[in-house]
Amino acid sequence: MEYFCGIDIGASTAKLVIADEQGRIVGKAMQRSGVDYTQTAQTLLDQALGQAKIEQSQIAHTISTGYGRDNVPWADGKMTEIACHGRGAYFHFNQQITVIDIGAQDSKIIHLGDDGRRVGFKMNRKCAAGTGAFIEEIAHRLALDITELNALAEKSTKNEPLGSFCTVFAATEVLAKIRAGVDVADIVRGAFCSVVNRIVEMDRVEGLLVTTGGVVAHNPFLATLIGRAFGTEALMPPEPQYTGALGAALFATKQSQEGQ
């Protein structure tokens, strides 16, 4: 049997998926991208091969994606994370979807038609607002571990709005709220809502709304808020952080079958 590999080296985290010919994940691995993307890719590959109990020679084709897509010497090709998140999400829903992917450094809205072809996309402007980096900054200001945020935001019933577009100014607003004694849970919810606002103003949603990426994987309540803001349910594929890597593996399958 042949296998196909997709590796998504993101700004913060690298993810790798090995899939079989039907797109079933047989091995996967994830770690911080670090500073040596090539080494990170090899480490992830070794882990996933071990999990799948296969040899590298059984991998017929590999596609790399993400910021580090040019740093995987054994990849057979590369695609953007926009293509791969779209493809990975469509695999699970198989109808017209709008994918909202929130990554560490950027946010993307990707439109796919009924047939899975991309019809449009938008990335956030050159700014950290509306990305994982913003949430990390707020967690830092509140002296919280990033894993604590989701439960706090969910517990809050009151949104303490952060008005600024700018991550640094928003962090200053957080300081003012701390000084005023505002409940930390409400501040976290306000930060989540700030991310949602940056997403909502980027583009429209057509078809099903699907959210992917590490930020919603760790903060599912953020996806809930996104759904509320768009007036629809925000769906999530299984293991949303691996969506880009899965999409890359699916492109690898397609390219291999087409003899590219």
Binding site: Y67, T80, E81, I82, R117, R118, F121, K126
Partner: peptide, 22 residues
């Protein structure tokens, strides 16, 4: 200072992928 190489590179690459039917 108002330009991001990485953002632009990815946007253009993704756009051409879209034109190619990806």
């Amino acid at each position: 200072r108002l330009y991001s190489d990485e953002q632009s590179r990815t946007n253009i690459e993704a756009f051409v992928e879209q034109l190619a039917g990806a």
